[in-house]
Amino acid sequence: MATVADAHDFWGTIGARIGLIRRNYRVAPGLYAIGSATPQSPVLVTANYKLSFDALRLRLGGVDAWILVVDTRGINVWCAAGKGTFSSEEVIESVQRYQLNEVVHHRELIVPQLAAPGVAAQVVKKRSGWSVLFGPIRSADIPRYLQANKTADQTMREVSFTLQERLVLIPVELFLLGKPLVLLLLGGFLLSGIGPYIFSFQAAWHSGLAFLYSTGLGIFSGAVLTPLFLPWLPFRQFWLKGILTALPVLAAASVWTSSLTGLGQIALALWAVAISSYLAMNFTGSTPFTSPSGVEKEMRLGLPVQAFTALTACTLWVARAFIF
């Protein structure tokens, strides 16, 4: 197995990052040899998501090792562990299925630390006799971990969320909007056409564009600015962060909506705030530090506020056509 990426890997990574082939970017489960792997070489376990597998193999230049790819249904290590597909059972079964005991002489598996919510070392040991060592979080640290006689320092064991790590998530945040966004905009164009004349296609188109523009502003502040500036934004709750990032965007964009009446401007501003707040709240799922108890708590307050704001925005938007 190569430890250098080729053009096919490059385009595949782009495809997976923007969400086009995200759910179907799999590697065949099995045992792969890296370098000149021998029966004494370490066994590194990973998920069968291609980005997980690539992250690992592309960092192993100059290392002799085995990679055991377990079937996580094409899901990355951490998510699969949380869902229970990267589990003790799956690891045990893979060890047996690919006859690892005939390939290597030792009985040691190096499992990614982030698989620990699904893989229990004591369970694997008891049922299969194989020892589980939890390796570092980032595959880039694996050569160093192996050199240090399979010990990881604290930095290797702690997750990070750097600017670069946040940046790569933005494309998929945007592309996953897809279908709900189309429905939302369709509804927006319909609302925009309502007036004293019952319905006007010209109004639907003309005002609908303003509605589209406001939706775009909300998406920009909620799904781009919020991830980008995350550590510097005040408030712990993400739905509040989303409201905050919408404000400067609206201030900067107000020039463009100056052709609207005051009521129309307020409606579109509220709409953008609601969208931004919702998308910021959605970003909790992409961060490595939000707890389910916390997200549930903030949603109990944030979701009703967002719904009320969006509803008010729509009401004002329709009312604006009747008031001069």
């Binding site: 998510c79 562990a81 620990a116 919510p117 699904g118 893989v119 799922g285 939000t290 389910p292 997200v295």
Partner: peptide
């Protein structure tokens, strides 16, 4: 995330595990 409790051999740690995702 549940990693600690899942790997505790004596159930000394407990947590209601899940993903912090809206």
């Amino acid at each position: 995330c549940g990693a600690c409790a899942h790997n505790c051999p004596t159930e000394a740690l407990s947590v209601r595990p899940g993903v912090g995702c809206a």
